[in-house]
Design a protein around this nucleic acid. Sequence first.
DNA 1: AGGATATGTCAGCCTTGTTGACATTCCAAG
DNA 2: CTTGGAATGTCAACAAGGCTGACATATCCT
Lengths: 170, 170
Amino acid sequence: MAENMPTNSSGGESLLYLTDEQLRKGIEAMFFAYRGFTADPDRILENMDYGRAHHRAVHFIHRSAGTTVGNLLAILGVTKQSLNRVLRTLFDDELVEARVGKKDKRERHLHLTEKGRALERALSDAQRSRMRSAYRAAGPQAVQGFRTVLEAMMDPELRRQFQGLVETGQ
Amino acid sequence: MAENMPTNSSGGESLLYLTDEQLRKGIEAMFFAYRGFTADPDRILENMDYGRAHHRAVHFIHRSAGTTVGNLLAILGVTKQSLNRVLRTLFDDELVEARVGKKDKRERHLHLTEKGRALERALSDAQRSRMRSAYRAAGPQAVQGFRTVLEAMMDPELRRQFQGLVETGQ
DNA sequence: AGGATATGTCAGCCTTGTTGACATTCCAAG
DNA sequence: CTTGGAATGTCAACAAGGCTGACATATCCT
């Protein structure tokens, strides 16, 4: 319905990749790929009492050991009540521990316990394994492009988070 | 923690892109990019009584006009109860209509109404706009790689869905 | 006629998000 | 040294959107 026509506004080189149809394909590719992306960890989680929210928390606590609750809130983009529900179960099950900040005693610095690291490893092994296959099948050139487009798709603020321009605070 | 070392099992060319660290970056890129990917339609939806589930339904009914309920179930990967809750509101609000199949009268073939097409356009305009910016910023080469990696990440069955090897049934 | 298929629906449950209100502890500036 | 604001935790209530199980109806196909 009035799609498909490349908006051939600029001159020379092929802009066919900016066609509405190509963009739609890209959108659906994101949708289906994200399903695959989460499928393996989800399978592991569903046997335990955890869900994707726990995965995300564990992942980022692993990545940024010693991060504060506030920092985690900013990264995950959920409310503190929502995060707290997750963190509480992780504390109770001794996967994560919170250490009172030395400089600022109001802050809680989060760390995985040995048990927590074990779960993290199981989850990320599964997820990395799929990622590795995809990367290998696609080749370094494609991976480069993959990363470039993904970064361009992020909100600027999140892109900064991603690029690690946010300090942990101790 | 015993990461970071490239598994330099094979010989010559650089396999640095298969490093655990690089894979972790890819995983987080997916996470943050998906947030951006859904952000714009979500903003539109939150003013109405709809959510992401409605968006998905409307998208795929648009893409495959006349598809059946069963087909949609397969594509979306949810239960019929879950889909039905969504479809019912779309029928009630006259965004979607169901036509009894001509060959097989058990089937319901789904179509967007004019009103439905309007919503679809609003949503996909927003989503495509971000996609287009990302594509343009990254360039055709990168887009090619982006698509290649995403396809490699899908479950094989979903990849077939994506590549459109599934007929609609009328 | 009878089994299989496509769809719809009721009821109930879970996870994970939300808002609002409030308490505690601690830092930092006046 | 007091006081406002920051970082955190918690209670309660609610909503969206998944899920299972059970059942009903219409239709097709053998």
